[in-house]
């Protein structure tokens, strides 16, 4: 399936329209990650050498499910069951139910601390290949747990860690000075890009950032 097919897959999932904007904002980044960046295989979802992708911002996962379906992780016929009692697809993802999902998320501020531990665990295992990607929202950055993690990741120099902040300017009090600067102060490398530009997204996630964690701030239309 191609990128052009994905919006139609999103429309198969109804009942969580209040988070439609959240789904819309992440669509291009998720597509590029799964199409061009992540080393993951739907036929070997537990490969220990796969890249790990954690969707911390679990709200509005319709785009996530659609991309996972387009890439062969989620059965297409599961999409219309979204939110139903026996569905594998809830309004927040559950790693025990959805093939390819690494993190059960929804409550904000949990994914990034877990991503740090996951990256450290891969270091302890001595696995050189796998990278860890974590997607959060600009409003999710309000959660203090993220700032505990941003500080420590910089100190530890977790170079296998890349965070994507989807910036639809929905943080209640904004981020004066810029989101990227918040990370740079803690020792991260940072890039701010157009979150709709597929080549820019691919390039930002392919940056060499040895010795330091990396953040990609993907700007999209303002929420609402």
């Amino acid at each position: 399936m191609s990128y052009e097919d994905v919006p139609a897959l999103v429309t198969l999932m109804t009942g969580d329209e209040k988070h439609g904007g959240a789904a819309e904002s992440t669509l291009d980044v998720l597509w590029v990650l799964y199409d061009r960046v992540l080393r993951v295989d739907p036929d070997a979802p537990d490969d220990p050498d796969r890249d790990r992708f954690l969707l911390s911002k679990g709200h509005g996962p319709m785009a996530y499910y659609a991309v996972l379906a387009a890439r062969g992780f989620v059965p297409l016929d599961a999409l219309p069951t979204f939110g139903r009692y026996d569905s594998i697809l809830g309004q927040h993802p559950d790693r025990a139910l959805v093939p390819g999902v690494e993190l059960s998320s929804g409550s904000l501020g949990h994914g990034l601390p877990i991503a740090l531990g996951l990256a450290a665990g891969l270091d302890l295992e001595g696995r050189a290949g796998p990278r860890v990607f974590c997607l959060i929202g600009d409003a999710e950055l309000d959660e203090g747990s993220n700032h505990e993690a941003i500080a420590l990741a910089g100190r530890l120099g977790l170079s296998r860690l890349t965070v994507c902040v989807m910036d639809n300017r929905s943080a209640t009090h904004g981020w004066p000075g810029g989101i990227d600067e918040r990370f740079r102060l803690e020792g991260w490398t940072a890039a701010t890009i157009d979150g709709r530009d597929h080549d820019a997204i691919e390039a930002a996630f392919s940056t060499d950032h040895r010795g330091r964690p990396h953040v990609v701030v993907a700007e999209v239309e303002r929420k609402g």
Binding site: P113, I114, L116, L118, E148, A149
Partner: peptide, 25 residues
């Protein structure tokens, strides 16, 4: 490498440990 001190950050303490557990630690 196996005595990990995250600093006085208790939410991170638990989340970080969960990430380790995801990798079989």
């Amino acid at each position: 490498r196996r005595v990990l001190n995250v600093g006085i950050r208790e939410q991170l303490l638990v989340g970080f440990a969960a990430g380790l557990a995801m990798e079989g630690i």
